[in-house]
């Protein structure tokens, strides 16, 4: 039997690594991580990005994702890294990729990786904002107080490994209510409470809906629609703030940022 030929010439090596921050906004927050990955690979082709491929019979583009926001949750701070076989100007790359992706999947920043180590190691915690239309702000305030006063708040969720029970309280670094004038409920006369959170990246992950389950476990909070957005992710400072994971690569100078 004739052995199958190896692809001729192999694949060009990686000469530049670029780290990207992107957002999932509005209706496109319903894209799953897999959906985003496919759309991103197509955008690379449409924007003619010189992406490097892995070797072998089924070469894959060199893309690694730092983390994935749950489907249905918006994000202003998702991160990925790509390997290129030809060096490019990151600002131009950011613009070209943003154009090639649909509005709502927005490439916010691209920087050349200049520091050792991967992005995932730099991600310890996330900042979340959750809008709760139909919930009165003082009602939420009481729930937050009860949550923070508790030692442990167990919730249950169906994960890929089956039904798991885990503590939501320990993962929460900061929990507060925000000024409600910033995000009206879009319907006149209906209040909208806003919850701001900083939550540690733990296993199993504690997601915004788990926090809401936790709040409902300790306080009488009406169930109803909620809209969560990840505002930032990165290393946690001593003050409970989140460091920009691209700062080390950026040399202090933002490139193509907002």
């Amino acid at each position: 039997m004739t052995p199958r030929r190896q692809p001729q010439g192999g694949q060009a090596p990686v000469v530049q690594r670029i780290r990207i921050r992107y957002a999932k906004r509005g209706p496109l927050r319903f894209t799953s991580h897999r959906d985003f990955a496919r759309a991103f690979e197509r955008a690379l082709r449409r924007a003619s990005v010189p992406i490097a491929f892995s070797q072998g019979f089924s070469p894959h583009p060199k893309i690694s994702y730092a983390s994935a926001v749950p489907t249905g949750v918006a994000s202003e701070a998702e991160y990925l890294e790509i390997g290129l076989h030809t060096a490019v100007d990151p600002a131009e790359l950011q613009r070209a990729l943003d154009r090639a992706l649909p509005p709502g999947l927005d490439v916010l920043e691209a920087v050349v990786a200049r520091s050792p180590g991967g992005l995932p190691e730099r991600i310890e915690a996330s900042a979340w904002r959750i809008e709760l239309p139909g919930v009165a702000p003082d009602r939420l305030g009481e729930a937050v107080a009860a949550f923070l006063a508790a030692e442990e708040i167990l919730v249950e969720r169906l994960t890929k490994q089956g039904r798991r029970t885990f503590d939501t309280r320990a993962a929460v670094v900061v929990m507060s209510t925000a000024d409600t004038t910033q995000a009206p409920s879009e319907v006149d006369g209906v209040p909208c409470a806003i919850l701001d959170l900083v939550v540690r990246q733990v296993t199993p992950s504690v997601r915004p809906d788990d926090i809401l389950s936790g709040l409902r476990a300790v306080a009488d909070l009406p169930s109803g629609p909620s809209r969560a957005t990840r505002l930032a992710q990165g290393e946690l400072t001593a003050h409970g703030e989140i460091d920009d994971p691209l700062a080390v690569d950026r040399d202090g100078v933002p490139i193509g940022g907002h």
């Binding site: 209706p27 496109l28 319903f30 894209t31 799953s32 959906d35 197509r42 489907t71 249905g72 649909p102 509005p103 709502g104």
Partner: peptide, 9 residues
């Protein structure tokens, strides 16, 4: 849910 959202290229 993405199947009901539209927004295709």
């Amino acid at each position: 849910p993405i199947q009901y959202v539209g927004g295709e290229l």
